[in-house]
Design a protein around this nucleic acid. Structure first.
Lengths: 341, 341
DNA sequence: TTGAAAGCGGTACCAA
DNA sequence: TTGGTACCGCTTTCAA
């Protein structure tokens, strides 16, 4: 009566065991477990009782295999967990996925396209329900893998008018351009930029390019731009500012890759008794949590990171279930004029 | 010659197709792909050429199924991505796992044991190679599932002398106790605490308990403790301080759940012209990145979050590959005396 | 060095 | 409402 192990070597209970114990066929037990209908209430009760008693855990690998289906995994690649903006995006994604019974398989690509390619190949071999990739740049082989895998895919972060499948993000170039134009309107003429290193296809580079273009269009001068080999965090903002100002003391305003770097800059200036915005203007990007406790409103660009994640997951789930999904979603941005320029 | 689709309906190429194209049996192709040996170089070249030409992607679901093995997935549950300490831990875990060809399946439990239980059941049904869970508290059913699944498991964050399987973390109670004792030694007598809401089994609660015990042992008074219903970030630190001080203005020093909250407090004090540590002492926990740019050294507890993740993953991988692993690893902590008390 | 056959744990499809 | 059978794509086992 209480013999838990019945036959298989490693005492794992499978459907056959449950069916046998309940005195029905494998198929009937299968139907009950999938709540497919087509069985009597008496049968259902019998089967479920055995499931409970034996502690049966379905083997989803077998289910996927048998049905030639996909798993409920969604591969999500982000460049870096140390960069706060991406953790917010990831949170938005995972929350949404979980509420629709899907699971996030994490991929940290470390900003390297080659890493991404390897990861894509691995994840695809596990038959994921879908993929969410950060960034629009991929290796040719990765693109080919994605296309032939024919799995729902959302490229997030930077907007892309012709995505491989779908795309959710914002126009980073424009956000940089708007910031540049705004700073010009405040009367600045010598501009600086501090970010972290990245390849040319990067969204932060698009922001820098937009910023540079606005400055050029407005007759200003982008006199110094710095790309540190670091994550875009508080301390890199601190020492990046030091570096930039020591190599070009005439810069009047600095645009940072994100708010955390800008806050690092604010602290550097405080330590050096450089007044903001009197001596120098500071602008961030992304409206990160730290901005909420500063004594003055940081000039920045507000972006709804969580929303990007949610929308990406939503569209992906629509496509997974065979519904119509939006190919390109622009979540937009909003310039926060602030008090630091 | 160039007919890519050979037989199966959705033009997915499988091992049989490759084998047929290469003029060998399925088994030989299988051996080549697994680099198992027992085939001629000529055969190897033939098979690999077809793999390349047909763009064959192995179906790992089938592999796992056939071999009655586990996947290379490792389920990693953390309470919350909005809490910076856990993103660092997660980063440490994923980096290590990836370098050993394993993938992280994320589980955000939102600090709810019931969520964790559901997630554990789901993840186990996918036959993971192992599991890493944050926290030592689980529902009885979760514990039973974990035990009968017999999958390598590491419980991280809080130390647990008798873990279900393995455990990596630090003694949170002690870290709180040490902080309390240190603050007593600085002459404080009326103590406060600000954290976020959580169940009794939480590590932050252990820190609070240690803190309270030290204060009691030293004859001080924990006059006010606040548990906000929020994430432990900058802004909750800001308004939590406001709340605490308005309800008990006599508090002399406040211990926060983490550095980000403490920094929020610092900003509140600055805004209110409350001098630190003259009017009030501030202590954080965790040594988070923001601390590196403050104008003075924050009194805090240094914890190597990344290391916890790495160690957890290392031990898990050891056990997965059948090697000896350390059951309990204490990564320790270090009190940073700082200048804010 | 190679291949044929069985089977992993489910589901689809048919028949009863 | 139920059960039998074939089969998903690969690996294990054994024979050649």
């Amino acid at each position: 009566m209480t013999d838990l192990k019945i036959s298989s070597k490693n005492n794992k209970i499978n459907l056959s065991e449950v069916a046998k114990a309940a005195g029905v066929s494998k198929m009937t037990a299968s139907r009950v477990l999938r709540e497919e209908g087509g069985y009597s209430e008496k049968t259902r009760v019998k089967v479920m009782a055995e499931v409970e008693r034996l502690g049966y855990l379905p083997n989803r690998i077998a289910t996927v295999f048998a049905g030639d289906k996909n798993t409920t995994f969604v591969g999500v690649s982000i460049p870096d967990l140390g960069n706060e903006v991406f953790t917010h995006v990831l949170e938005g994604i995972d929350r949404k996925l979980v509420s629709f019974n899907h699971q996030t398989v994490l991929g940290m690509t470390q900003h390297a396209l080659a890493e991404e390619e390897t990861w894509i190949e691995t994840v695809l071999s596990w038959k994921p329900a879908g993929l969410i990739l950060t960034g629009r740049a991929h290796t040719p082989k990765a693109v080919q893998l994605l296309q032939s895998a024919n799995v729902p895919l959302v490229e997030i972060w930077d907007l892309n008018s012709s995505p491989i499948d779908m795309c959710v993000g914002l126009n980073h170039f424009d956000s940089g351009y708007d910031m540049g134009r705004f700073l010009l309107s405040k009367g600045y003429t010598r501009f600086g930029y501090v970010g972290t290193s990245h390849d040319a296809a990067n969204a932060a580079t698009s922001r820098l390019n937009g910023y540079a273009k606005a400055i050029e269009d407005g007759g200003g001068k982008l006199s110094k731009q710095l790309c540190l080999n670091d994550i875009p965090g508080f301390y890199p903002g601190f020492y990046g500012t030091e570096q930039l100002l020591s190599s070009d003391p005439d810069v009047e305003v600095i645009f940072f890759q994100n708010d955390n770097m800008a806050v690092g800059a604010v602290h550097f200036c405080q330590a050096q008794h450089i007044s903001i915005p009197g001596d120098i203007g500071i602008a961030g990007w992304g409206e990160l949590p730290i901005a909420s406790v500063l004594p003055y409103r940081l000039t920045t660009v507000q972006v709804n990171h969580l929303r990007i994640g949610q929308l990406a997951a939503e569209n992906l789930l629509l496509k997974i279930s065979g519904d119509q999904a939006t190919p390109v979603s622009d979540v937009g941005f909003r310039l926060v004029t602030g008090e630091t320029v």
